[in-house]
Simulated assay, not measured.
Amino acid sequence: MTWEALHLPLVLLLFASGSWAQVEENEVVWAVQQQVVSVKCPSTPPAGEYENKIWCKETKPGYCLKLVTSTRPQVMAQNPPHFIWDNPSAGFFIVIVTEITKKSSGTYWCGIDRGPKESIYILKNISLVVTSIFWAALL
């Protein structure tokens, strides 16, 4: 039996409740292959100069491969299939991922890029779970 079939009741329960599994700044996001996913990442309005926002995929504990980084507010940062839209005064930024595949599954960080030494201030951890079953159609 496939992973999707074993976990379908849990997925249906999550959708029926209208909520996602979320604990503080950790979030589980379910996605379907070939669909688009957006993630809302927290951010505090800047007191000084703009802080670059980042979306990266964890490669091993404590290490993350940078996928896209914003460099200016209210300008779409692009490294297809990864995009960031940041409006600092809103208190959050949006990450959009297109072309979702099974390989997209994994742990991601959204955060603030702290410079050339590649240090990242993590704002949120996201576990992306990709399935080939379009379970939302079953509701």
Results as ranks from 00 to 15, higher is better:
T71Q: 13
T71N: 13
T71C: 10
R72T: 11
R72A: 15
R72K: 15
R72Q: 15
R72F: 09
R72C: 11
P73R: 04
P73Q: 09
Q74T: 10
V75L: 15
M76W: 12
A77R: 01
Q78T: 08
Q78L: 03
Q78K: 10
Q78D: 04
N79E: 01
N79C: 02
N79Y: 01
P80Y: 05
P80H: 07
P80I: 00
P81G: 04
P81W: 00
H82K: 02
H82W: 01
H82G: 00
F83K: 01
F83R: 00
F83P: 01
I84W: 03
I84D: 02
W85I: 05
W85A: 04
D86Y: 00
D86R: 01
D86T: 02
N87V: 07
N87K: 02
P88K: 10
P88G: 10
S89W: 06
S89F: 06
A90G: 03
A90R: 11
A90E: 09
F92A: 07
F92Y: 14
F92V: 04
F93R: 00
F93T: 01
I94Y: 07
I94R: 05
I94N: 04
I96A: 10
I96F: 07
V97K: 01
V97H: 00
V97R: 01
V97N: 01
V97P: 00
V97D: 00
T98P: 03
T98A: 08
E99A: 09
E99W: 06
E99F: 05
I100C: 11
I100P: 06
T101H: 14
T101E: 12
K102V: 11
K102F: 12
K103Y: 12
K103T: 13
S104Y: 13
S104V: 07
S105N: 06
S105W: 03
S105D: 06
T107Y: 14
T107S: 13
T107V: 12
T107Q: 13
T107P: 04
Y108P: 02
Y108V: 03
Y108K: 03
Y108T: 02
W109F: 07
W109N: 01
W109A: 02
C110V: 05
C110T: 04
G111F: 09
G111P: 09
I112D: 14
I112P: 09
R114E: 15
R114S: 14
R114W: 11
R114L: 15
G115S: 09
G115A: 08
G115P: 07
G115E: 09
G115V: 03
P116M: 07
K117E: 13
K117T: 09
K117L: 10
E118H: 10
E118A: 08
S119L: 12
S119W: 14
I120A: 06
Y121R: 15
Y121N: 15
Y121C: 13
Y121E: 15
I122Y: 11
L123A: 15
K124L: 07
N125T: 14
N125H: 14
I126C: 03
I126Y: 01
S127Q: 13
S127A: 13
S127R: 14
S127F: 11
S127N: 14
L128R: 08
L128A: 08
L128E: 10
V129W: 06
V129H: 11
T131G: 14
T131L: 11
